[in-house]
Design a protein around this nucleic acid. Structure first.
Lengths: 232, 232
DNA sequence: CAGTGGTCTAGACCACGGT
DNA sequence: CCGTGGTCTAGACCACTGT
């Protein structure tokens, strides 16, 4: 048997195996990094790297002085990728299209003020737009933009480039929130998405900020067939 | 001015600042790790650690020989936490309750066979259960379990402990898929969740495996007020 | 082929947080 | 207080991949 190279990945896999084995059941304290390094025949840094990765995904609980334990309630974390809609559609083999429905300057409704943490009802740029995949409605977008944070957007022709894409290419946000929910299609959504009124729509809401200044709040309604998937 | 300690976090923050500044715009090639280490006055390993974290979340693109670039299409990644339902309810301050509606052994329908990659229609354990928060319906769970993978579950009294909880505590899955969608409430869901038929429900579907052997497929329907949130 | 990031090492100091 | 993980260093070798 050849002396296998000890990599952090190999330690990661071995530790995971012992956890799944229940060699180390939930709540169990693992040997200290030094002990494990001796057992695996490697430096402490290598063990540390492996265990840190497991702690990052919630499988281990590492604390100074207390040591490393197998997490009791493994709060599994799933990562969702939030691509630009255009890329998402093209990745699925569709031809991307975009239609600006309305563009106006309006005082924001309460839920927008709340999401963007706006102290008053200073008017924002409001857009309604439809994203299309092969000319079929992909999602109806209801967006509010604070032009005080991104003044350059005021001069952009949003019929040619979607606000979504312009923002991604021109503003790197520093913080954001994401909410997923389901809602029934109102008349406007039903018409735009060509689905019956009352149909169950998948809703993605995002608020983004640039150094605590609000950039945009967007609500995207997807037709009933839409699914978001990931693997864990 | 004291000589600040150079930590990987400080480099992480500084690089992020330069990206947001557009000092390094999307597509820009960064100086090599050695150069940056010299600039920041630290070891290459420290720079490497900082840049790796940024690459992990899709902000940088690091490749051997090609160097490090600012990602052009920042596919932002959001991480969703998938807790045990009981913990989720208790974390929100609710009192958890659980009701087993049906328990039977049945051949699985096609969508279950497909999700679990089952070659035939060998009967599985099928459960319908309702999770409650302060006696109000929280979610209707439709679960299929392959007892060949988890035979011990056959003898568990699922009226006392939910399958959800038993599985989390007793089986560490090795792989899984997650899908989120929206659907209209059918008569059964409407009655269980005390909402009108046709209401928009938020649906979470999960399939989990233990070393390529199917464990369970579960579809959880949440009433219209349900939201999943995270920050980025 | 050759340049660049990926990783390992051995040792050191330090920050956090149980006891 | 003092044990344990977190991090930095300086150097080395290696794997991947663009040219």
């Amino acid at each position: 048997m050849p002396a296998e190279a000890v990599t952090w990945q190999s330690i990661h896999a071995e530790v995971l195996r012992r956890i799944r084995d229940r060699t180390w059941p939930p709540g169990q304290v693992l040997p200290h990094d030094d002990k494990l390094a001796a057992e695996f025949g490697c430096a402490r840094g290598t063990v540390s790297r492996a265990l840190r990765e497991l702690a990052d995904v919630g499988i281990l609980d590492r604390r100074r002085k207390a040591g490393t334990r197998v997490a009791v309630s493994p709060v599994r974390k799933a990562t969702l990728e939030i691509p630009v809609i255009r890329k998402e559609i093209e990745a699925r083999g569709g031809r991307y299209g975009h239609m600006l429905i309305t563009r106006e300057i309006l005082p924001p409704p309460l839920h927008v003020r709340s999401a963007l943490d706006l102290p008053d009802d200073t008017p924002l740029l409001h857009l309604m737009a439809l994203h299309l995949s092969d000319d079929a409605p992909w999602c109806l977008e209801d967006r509010w933009i604070d032009l005080r944070t991104v003044p350059a957007l005021a001069d952009v022709d949003l019929r040619r480039i979607s606000a979504n894409q312009w923002l991604v290419e021109n503003v790197a946000y520093t913080a954001g929130t994401l909410a997923l929910s389901a809602t029934a299609a109102d008349a406007e959504a039903a018409e735009a998405l060509r689905c019956p009124e009352g149909a169950a729509l998948f809703v993605i809401e995002r608020a983004t900020f640039l150094n605590d200044r609000p950039i945009t709040f967007v609500r995207q309604k997807h037709p009933p067939a839409f699914r978001m998937t990931t693997s864990v």
